[in-house]
Design a protein around this nucleic acid. Structure first.
Lengths: 342, 342
DNA sequence: CTGAAAGCGCTTACAG
DNA sequence: CTGAAAGCGCTTACAG
């Protein structure tokens, strides 16, 4: 049995190939291609034509080795499946401009070991910086070990205030929701939300309470109904609220899924939304909010924008800018579930 | 105004640093760290300690430059926001093993120009291969230009049968759904689905028709109700079906969102699910299917597995394996909306 | 067992 | 305006 001759693997063209074809030195070819240094224009044209002909694509590895910059950024997420990471990730990708920068994606799945591993892999690939995306708004421990490149935390802030964290103002979001309901003429407002163990739930509730207090109004039931983030809880909690406080004329829900459950129970009770009672959700999750009956008004956290800002901050930090954190307000996306009462 | 002295940027430790600290040559340090060549064990220990002390992480760029392999794969998606890409992406990431391989993520957003641009960026970073994830099952044109590395298409197959495509068997999925309804004792089955312009809609309908024909049963309404993929269409179509064909005892929906709309209308009509009529969805989208009332039985396309297989195929192809495509069946995830009739 | 040397593909002073 | 040479950080024959 003889060894088959190796099929010669396709070898991408190098600058040397281009230079040879154009009849110049690699140094000149390099300058021509990068528009650096003085090159006679006829020479440049010849080089560019050769590069075109060979479909030459400069080897970014070799460049990175020289310059120390790789034009590459690491994106560390903890829940790729979770819907919060994705818009952030898209924003970050947008911020990286039309392909000047490429993004390495890693999912640590909330596992510290895996995270350390990924950071190591990213660092050995010499990323110029890191973006760390969390899946809930509770502060997280900063990346372990010494990280030789800038790091930006998004959605979930770093517990270290010296780090750069780009976050959502959930207290403000809660306030926004209540203010919108007040603007719609509502006065008897309840708040049904997710697990109290989540900072997001507590923050939104705090904002809601503050806005009601500012208006001199009590919260229906006297406190938020903490439970879980899903429809079942929305259904169950709405049931309680309606029975115990039939005067309720608006419900602020901590998530769109809760709001869907609330809508369902309200229909069971024959309460018309929005004529008899208004409902507002949180997250503005299109698939949940945009096609319900009635369509759901919701607070949008502008996650994509958050990602864009994170990307911009990271690039600024790479270029030497001082670290600074920022918190962004959400916005009300109005649909039919809160139409102002005549 | 004087120029500030440059703050000396942090320089990651190199193999030379490690070798110096261990008192050996870089060649020996390299062998010790990679476990290659004969190195006295006391020497190896000394080198490894030095590496540990300096937190040395080998420069993957330099390695890649030498070996021609970067341990890096490009993931080209066309709709990052779309929920189909994400599980596939996770599967592909899983297949890449515990960080041996890192994934470059790019979103072309269905734009050919952007796609070309990203491919170029990926290629110049010398990825070892590419995974192309589509957002619908219609065949897509293969990547433009000569791609010097293996490519695997997932979900959306390449129009070129010589390419490697890993896809879902949607015809089989439609068949599965009908067979499940038949197994539940249903005989008068309607099919409400998305736009006929989607191969996925046509394939599922084809499978459904075949399974009904095999059972010697007609499809209620004589043809599928093509419309759109959302809840509104589910509500409207169910309305029609119920009014025109009150004998219907099961509805196969082309998406979970359609199924949610159908459930809502059935409740409006006082039709009990699943006692009076069964409903099955498609996609098994947790957020939509898992917490409805009743919870929704659905066809799961095993997208994550698709991604894993795509990753494995890519790595095999990188190692020289012959290209081969594969189509995977979905599976029924049973919940309460189809409980067999007593 | 260890190390000097060449080289991966590129860029950047520095001569000419 | 052009090119020879050095070097980025590593690995791999090849001597010793």
């Amino acid at each position: 049995m003889t060894t088959e001759p190796e099929v010669p693997a396709y070898r991408p063209p190098t600058l040397t190939d281009v230079a040879k074809l154009a009849g110049v030195s690699v140094a000149t070819a390099s300058k021509a291609i990068n528009g650096r240094g003085e090159v006679r224009s006829s020479t440049r044209v010849r080089v560019l034509e050769a590069a075109e002909l060979l479909s030459f694509a400069p080897n970014a590895l070799a460049r990175g080795l020289l310059s120390g910059r790789t034009g590459t950024v690491g994106l560390l997420t903890s829940d790729l499946e979770g819907r919060f990471s994705i818009p952030i990730l898209m924003g970050a990708e947008d911020a990286s401009g039309a392909g000047q920068v490429s993004v390495f994606l890693c999912d640590a799945r909330g596992d510290a070991i895996r995270e350390k591993h990924h950071v190591q892999a990213l660092l050995s690939r010499r990323v110029d910086g890191l973006i760390v995306v969390g899946s809930r708004t509770d502060p997280r421990p900063p990346l372990a070990g010494t990280i030789p490149v800038p790091v930006v935390y998004v959605y979930a802030p770093s517990a270290d205030p010296a780090d750069i964290s780009i976050t959502v103002d959930n207290v403000g979001g809660g306030r926004l929701a209540i203010e919108h309901l007040l603007a719609c003429g509502r006065r008897a407002i309840a708040h049904i939300t997710g697990e109290a163990g989540f900072q997001a739930a507590r923050d939104r509730a705090e904002g809601a309470a503050a806005a009601l207090a500012a208006a001199g109004l009590p919260m229906v039931g006297d406190r938020p109904y903490f439970g879980s983030w899903d429809e079942s809880w929305g259904r169950a909690a709405a049931h309680m609220v309606i029975e115990q406080h039939p005067e309720v004329d608006a419900i602020f829900c901590g998530s769109d899924q809760i709001a869907r459950g609330v809508l369902e129970t309200l229909r069971d009770f024959g309460r018309d939304v929005p004529r008899s009672i208004s409902v507002i959700g949180f997250d503005n999750w299109e698939a949940i909010a945009a096609d319900s009956r009635p369509r759901l008004t919701s607070i949008d956290m502008n996650l994509k924008h958050l990602g864009e800002v994170a990307g911009q901050r990271l690039f600024a930090a790479i270029d030497g800018a001082a670290p600074s954190s920022e918190e962004f307000p959400g916005r009300v996306v109005m649909r039919e579930s809160t139409l102002p009462v005549g």
